[in-house]
C-alpha cells in the first residue's frame, strides 16, 4: 500500500535519510522506532507530503505520489508534534474548518460523534485555548481521522496524554485497525507499541536497521530489539 524506495533526504550538509526502502501493506500497524535524529519524523513527513525527498520515490498503491494528486492526499491522515488546531475556535469550529478543507459532505454528525469518542462532549463549544495538552491532543486525533483516512500517520501521538486518554486513544486506534486502516506510528512509547502495532521498523542513522514482526512479543523483547540485542540473543 505505502512504499518508499531509496528515500534520501539531505538538509544542508546533513544526510538525514540514507536510502530507506520500506513497504507497508494495507491494514498493517507499524511502529517506526529510533533514537533522536534517526530520521523517523523526516520519513513520516515525506510520506505525508510535508517534505520533499532529495531522492527516491513514495508510492501509494503502486502509484508515485504527486503533489497535485489530491485524491492521494485525501487518503492520508497526519498527526504531527503540533495539533494544527486554532486556539480561538471551539472543537466543533476547528473540526468544521478541517471538514471544509477536506470537502466533506454533511460532516456535522461525524464531527459530534468524534468529539464524543475522544471524550470532549462537555467542551464542544469552548475555545480550546483553555484546554490542557491532553485535551488538545485528543482533539488533534479527531482532526486527523475526521476524513476517514486509509492511512494514519502518527508522530508520537501518546505525548501528553494521561492514562485514561491513552486507553481511549488506543481503543480508537484498535477500532480503526479493525476497519482496515493502515497505522504508521513514530513513537518511543514501548507499551503502546505493544498494544497497537504488529511490526516494528527501527531506523538508525537514516537507515533501516531492523524490521520485525512484534505480534505476541513482550515489551522487553521490543526494547531489546530497539537496543539491537534481541536478534543476536
Amino acid at each position: 500500500m505505502i512504499e518508499t524506495i531509496g528515500i534520501t533526504k539531505t538538509i544542508g550538509e546533513k544526510m538525514i535519510l540514507r536510502g530507506v526502502n520500506l513497504r507497508i501493506n494495507q491494514g498493517e500497524s507499524v511502529a517506526i522506532l529510533g533514537t533522536n535524529g534517526a530520521g523517523k519524523s523526516t520519513w513520516l513527513k515525506i510520506v505525508a507530503g510535508l517534505l520533499k525527498q532529495s531522492n527516491g520515490d513514495v508510492l501509494l498503491d503502486g502509484v508515485p505520489r504527486k503533489k497535485d494528486d489530491y485524491s492521494q492526499q485525501q487518503r492520508l491522515g497526519y498527526l504531527g508534534h503540533q495539533s494544527f488546531l486554532y486556539e480561538a475556535f471551539s472543537p466543533v469550529e476547528n473540526l468544521q474548518f478541517f471538514a471544509k478543507l477536506y470537502q466533506l459532505k454533511s460532516p456535522d454528525k461525524r464531527i459530534h460523534q468524534l468529539i464524543d469518542d475522544v471524550g470532549l462532549s462537555f467542551f464542544k463549544h469552548e475555545p480550546i485555548r483553555s484546554f490542557s495538552r491532553g485535551m488538545i491532543q485528543r482533539l488533534a486525533i479527531a482532526r486527523a481521522i475526521l476524513h476517514e483516512p486509509d492511512v494514519l500517520l502518527l508522530d508520537e501521538p501518546h505525548t501528553g496524554l494521561d492514562q485514561q486518554a491513552v486507553s481511549l486513544f488506543n481503543r480508537l486506534l484498535l477500532d480503526l485497525k479493525a476497519e482496515g486502516v493502515t497505522i504508521i506510528m513514530v513513537t518511543h512509547d514501548f507499551p503502546q507499541i505493544n498494544a497497537i502495532c504488529d511490526r516494528a521498523v527501527i531506523l538508525r542513522k537514516g537507515k533501516i536497521a531492523e524490521d520485525e514482526c512484534i505480534r505476541g512479543r513482550p515489551v522487553s523483547w521490543i526494547h531489546s530489539l530497539y537496543e539491537g540485542e534481541a536478534l543476536s540473543s
Binding site: L50, Y70, Q73, G80, F98, L101, Y102, R143
Partner: peptide, 9 residues
C-alpha cells in the same frame, strides 16, 4: 502544516 497535509492546492 495542517493546511499542507489537506488535499488543498
Amino acid at each position: 502544516h495542517g493546511l499542507m497535509v489537506a488535499p488543498v492546492d
